[in-house]
Amino acid sequence: MGSNQSLPKITAQDKAILDLKLQRDKLKQYQKKIQGILDREHAIAKAQIAAGEKDRALIALRRRKYQQTLLIKTDQQLENLEQLVTTIEFSLVEVSVLHGLKQGNEVLKEIHKEMNIESVEKLLEETAEAREYQKEIGDLLANTLTLDDEEAVQNELLALQWDIEKEEAAGVILPSVPEEEPIGEATTVAEPRKEPEVRQKVAAPA
């Protein structure tokens, strides 16, 4: 027992899987054997034809055909076996995933024990208070501008006002947005010639 302690136990599952795999190996070896027979029959048929024995060649080919059907059948069986093995092995993986999830869940529970809702609420409250305090300080600081700053602000305001007055004095009169509905399309389509004249009239005073 001493040296074998770290080895996992061989379970009935393990043995079942091994059994399946050994069966699979047997099928594979059987297929190899059939393949050998196929090659042999082919060679025999060839030799018989060369020797002019057509009937015998035919027999060899028939035997070959039969073996071929066997090969196809074993292929299907092999597929079944392999599918079963894969399914079992995948289920084992699923089991271990489940185990992992379970453990993770336990850990999460432990952690949750340490942070109950009351202490979180208290913590959040304290944080909110601290934030409030910070905001108050910020407001206080913002409201106490120095005299110099105030003067600069006033100057800026004056400059802006002066700029606006200057623009108005320059007398740039922009046309106002037309209040009437535009004339329906029908008229413009019917009399396309009149339009250029209208445009000229408008352009002249500008």
Binding site: S3, S6, P8, L22
Partner: peptide, 21 residues
């Protein structure tokens, strides 16, 4: 070195390799 384990059943033998402990 505990890196392999032979599994024997009536029909034959198999082996399982284990990670280096």
């Amino acid at each position: 070195t505990n890196r392999s384990q032979i599994i024997a059943i009536a029909d034959g033998e198999g082996v399982r390799f284990l990670s280096r402990s």
